[in-house]
Simulated scan of single mutants.
Amino acid sequence: MRHWGAMNETAHPRSAPLRARAEIDLAAVRANVRALRDRAPGAALMAVVKSDAYGHGAVPCARAAVAAGATWLGTATPEEALALREAGLSPGQVRIMCWLWTPGGPWREAIEADLDVSVSGMWALKEVREAARAAGRPARVQLKADTGLGRNGCQHADWADLVTEALRAEAEGLIRVTGLWSHFACADEPGHPSVAAQLDRFREMVAHAERLGVRPEVRHIANSPATLTLPEARFDLVRSGIALYGISPSAEIGTPVDLGLRPAMTLTASLALVKRVPGGHGVSYGHHYVTPGPTTLGLVPVGYADGIPRHASGTGPVLVGGKWRTVAGRVAMDQFVVDLGGDEPEIGSEVVLFGPGDRGEPTAEDWAQAAGTIAYEIVTRIGTRVPRVYLNEE
């Protein structure tokens, strides 16, 4: 049997000494799913678990989401979706959709695994028809409309041709058009004029497809920010990604607390070294930080190979001994340094890089601001050599 992807392994129990760990609170994931369902009570919920559940672990998070009422799972690549099926998330338990295809992809395997596959153009429709013939069963196909994002999806000018050809394939028994969908460009910017324009275009393209004879099971365009703020965009299904993990899609929409969400990931490391140094001592590559006077330095044994952004050199916050400290100098591949200001915590003391903020620790959003990026990237980039430790599995 072909295996479709490695997932992060659950680490040893909480008492195990670890260089670093990412604790994933699955109770928070379940609570976030329930909060999102409450926001969109008339729509089904798709839990988006692409990119190993935004770094949180696809299989454990998928199971938690389904337990809390998600009836769909979403992935970018077919390999991610097939790995979920291989892990035991069966067609009778949950529908799974994948949308990022390239020519020669595993169409037949997707059909046989009862996945919903996205089609944005004629080349993909041709390949899925051929795979359905080979599989001897129809493919579940969702047609994607480009309503203004300008990435994947079928342009308005080509929509009628794609829909007509899909209906022809459906009449041949090769596919079943199960969905019509699109994606917002600026739903995380409340009031942006593109949001209303995309909604109008989506309604128009859906209506056109339905006039031609498409009878979709689901119509969907709402991502996390639209799920949280745009009731008119929820249709039959909402797709929640970052909000599932308790992170706000943007500061303009609100904090996790404002939105009734709880961050699921807490990233910690064990302090590897504490030493006294004199004033004027250079720290890390390039000596971009020089101690202003006698002090103590603490070595944190994670770096950009673990996903700690090098762009947060000199700015990234951590909590050590109840106090916020900042990365001193450059983040290196495997480690960075903090100036402890004369404090001497014990070797092995916990360093909290980010978490929900309950203990006064930084959050993923704090790191995003320090690195000039978004919180999505902070959690997603945490590398595979950082073990995931799952709390509150059931």
Score class of each variant (00 low, 15 high):
Val290Lys: 05
Glu86Gly: 12
Leu261Cys: 09
Ala40Leu: 05
His281Thr: 15
Ala332Glu: 11
Thr77Ala: 12
Asn152Pro: 04
Gly105Ala: 15
Gly298His: 00
Leu174Asp: 00
Glu170Val: 00
Arg85Gln: 00
Val177Cys: 04
Ala157Arg: 02
Trp72Asn: 11
Ala62Gln: 12
Ala364Lys: 00
Leu84Gln: 00
Thr268His: 10
Pro249Arg: 10
Gly148Leu: 14
Pro278Ser: 02
His208Glu: 07
Trp101Phe: 15
Val206Tyr: 03
Ser90Leu: 05
Pro362Gly: 11
Ser240Glu: 05
Leu180Gly: 07
Gly136Ile: 01
Asn8Lys: 08
Glu350Thr: 15
Gly105Glu: 13
Gln335Lys: 14
Ala70Val: 01
Ser224Gly: 02
Arg39Phe: 12
Thr384His: 10
Asp158His: 04
Asp334Met: 04
Val257Ser: 14
Glu204Ile: 00
Gly153Phe: 05
Gly69Met: 06
Pro256Leu: 08
Phe202Ala: 02
Ala371Asn: 01
Gly322Met: 13
Leu259Tyr: 06
Leu228Glu: 11
Leu18His: 09
Glu365Thr: 10
Ser182His: 10
Gly355Arg: 04
Leu73Lys: 09
Ala222Trp: 13
Leu18Val: 03
Leu212Trp: 01
Gly191Trp: 03
Ala67Arg: 06
Arg381Lys: 09
Ala222Arg: 07
Glu394Leu: 07
Gly279Lys: 08
Ala169Tyr: 01
Met1Gly: 11
Thr255His: 05
Ala53His: 07
Ala31Glu: 15
Gln369Phe: 05
Met97Asn: 13
Gly307Thr: 01
Gly282Ala: 12
Glu394Phe: 01
Asp38Gln: 12
Leu259Phe: 08
Glu377Ile: 08
Lys275Gly: 11
Ser284Thr: 15
Leu45Val: 12
Arg215Ala: 15
Gly329Thr: 02
Asn32Ile: 13
Asp366Ala: 13
Phe184Met: 08
Gly341Met: 13
Gly329Cys: 14
Glu361Phe: 07
Val94Thr: 10
Pro78Val: 14
Gly104Ser: 05
Pro225Leu: 11
Ser349Met: 02
Ala76His: 03
Leu340Met: 13
Glu165Lys: 04
Val283Phe: 00
Leu36Tyr: 11
Leu340Trp: 08
Arg19Met: 14
Trp324Ile: 15
Asp188Glu: 11
Val274Thr: 03
Glu9Thr: 14
Tyr54Cys: 07
Arg388Thr: 09
Ala132His: 03
Arg95Phe: 06
Arg39Ser: 06
Gly348Ser: 08
Ala157Val: 05
Leu391Met: 07
Gln155Ile: 12
Val119Ile: 13
Arg63His: 02
